[in-house]
Amino acid sequence: MEISLRQRISKKTGRITLYLEIYKGYSKDENGKIKHNREYEYLDYFLYEKPKNSIEKQHNKESLKSAEAVKAQKILEIQNGKYGFSNTHKLNTNFIDYFKKLTKERFESLGNYGNWDSTLKHLLSYTSKTTTFKDISPEFCEGFKDYLLNKVKTKTGNALSQNSCSSYFNKFRASLNQALDDGIINDNPCKKVKGIKAEETEREYLTQEELNAIMKAECRYDILKNAFLFSCFTGLRWSDIHKLTWSKIQDFEDGYKVQFKQQKTKGVEYLDIPKNALKYIGKRGNPEDRVFIGLKYSAYMNTALTQWMLRAGITKPITFHCARHTYATFLLTKGVDIYTVSKMLGHRELKTTQIYTKVIDQKKRDAVNVFDEAFKN
């Protein structure tokens, strides 16, 4: 952030207006065009353009002196933390490097790293890699929010989904909250910026009958079939399935478990693997080897998944993530309490799991409607 004292001549009065220019860095749009972020604060001082006598000359001298004092006070306020920054050294901390550090810390987190990494890429497209905390203002936050909602395009040329925008903006806000906890800033410049509300999406899942059907149906890629069914029986996300190594699958007296390290607590936790899921992981390999070698996220894998579902008589849109929905819905349908399901899914908040209860409620309503259909007047 830079503050400069500027002058502007009024053609109407012939006087020179004094004002402060507050430069808060710049951002870039989707085309790479730079947009500078400046604010202006007009002062209650003016100068005579061509002083005619000693009085006007003295007026100019005193006005300039007063304006310089206001500028110095403004700089001092920033350094003392009035605008959310604790000191000059921390003020100049590189925000992008800080966000990269937070992203890297989440590499082992269940499904969280990908969202942080995507947010980082959007930040690098929106602003400069040299952006510091002194450049992060409420206007910067509003600008990033608008960038996500209205400027970003996917590889197919479509706008980001509302939920993706919500997720990325929340990661940006979380990074500033962390900076607050770390003592880099005294206040979160994003706190007064309204967030992006996530839309409630319909969560497709497979019923027990449909799950039995896809077990019997042929899939072009065995590795895809095994990985998807393993996800159905464990609730693991695509990212966790994809990077799962044999060292994480351990044999205990009471059965096999998948080992995880919780990013927040650094504590080790385990997820039990049902016995009927073990047949989908095959013969144990070396500890560092991936369990599902050859599994890739690609168009042909997605196509193969759709064709597999169609062979099983399933026409609703099913993605790999629907395996996780199937796991959660199946447990709740069979009477497992929501707190236990939440822990098994690795949710930090119970309200995240409660979304699945709406699916169960709908199934109950559908069951009741069977009577209305069977006994129409």
Rank of each mutant, 00 (worst) to 15 (best):
Gly255Thr: 09
Ala179Ser: 14
Asp254Gln: 13
Ala217Asn: 02
Val193Ile: 07
Glu204Thr: 11
Lys191Thr: 11
Cys219Thr: 05
Ala217Leu: 04
Cys232Pro: 14
Arg237Tyr: 12
His242Pro: 11
Ala213Cys: 01
Ile273Arg: 06
Lys191Leu: 13
Glu269Gly: 05
Phe252Thr: 11
Asp181Lys: 10
Ala198Asn: 00
Ala179Tyr: 00
Ala198Gly: 10
Asn212Gln: 08
Lys266Ile: 00
Asn226Thr: 11
Gly255Phe: 01
Cys219Asn: 05
Pro189Thr: 14
Glu209His: 10
Lys225Tyr: 07
Gln259Ser: 11
Cys232Gly: 12
Glu269Gln: 10
Asp251Pro: 05
Leu244Phe: 05
Thr245Cys: 14
Val268Met: 00
Ile249Ala: 04
Leu180Ala: 14
Lys216Gly: 03
Arg220Thr: 13
Gly255Trp: 00
Gly195Leu: 07
Asp222Lys: 05
His242Asn: 15
Val193Met: 03
Ala198Trp: 00
Asp182Ser: 09
Asp181His: 04
Ala198Met: 06
Thr234Ala: 13
Gly195His: 08
Lys243Ser: 15
Asp272Val: 13
Gln250Tyr: 09
Trp238Met: 07
Thr245Gln: 12
Pro189His: 11
Leu244Lys: 02
Lys194His: 07
Asp182Arg: 01
Pro189Phe: 08
Glu202Trp: 02
Gln259Glu: 09
Arg237Phe: 15
Glu200Ala: 10
Leu176Asn: 07
Leu229Val: 05
Lys192Asp: 08
